[in-house]
């Protein structure tokens, strides 16, 4: 076997943000489904939250390459 543990580390690091992003969009979809007119209000919040949560996964990616 060849390769680095970095890939495994990144895989582990991506679990949390993956769940987080899933939760954010689940809540967003639910909110829009319940109140379609709230879409324009919810969209920026959802995408800002998504960007923040995904930042963690991207840090993991950076670390996987850097370390």
């Amino acid at each position: 076997m060849e390769g680095t543990l970095n890939a495994v580390g990144y895989g582990l690091a991506a679990i949390g943000p993956g769940i987080g992003v899933g939760l954010i969009f689940a809540a967003y979809i639910q909110g829009v489904a319940r109140q379609p007119e709230a879409r324009s209000v919810l969209q920026p919040i959802a995408f800002l939250g998504f960007a923040l949560a995904e930042a963690l996964a991207l840090f993991g990616l950076v670390l996987a390459f850097v370390l």
């Binding site: 960007a51 923040l52 995904e54 930042a55 991207l58 990616l61 950076v62």
Partner: peptide, 17 residues
């Protein structure tokens, strides 16, 4: 940190990755 550093970092990294 979030606004000044993390935002540009994630913006470019997300697209790149």
């Amino acid at each position: 940190v979030s606004t000044v550093f993390v935002r540009p970092l994630t913006l470019s990294l997300r697209l790149f990755a």
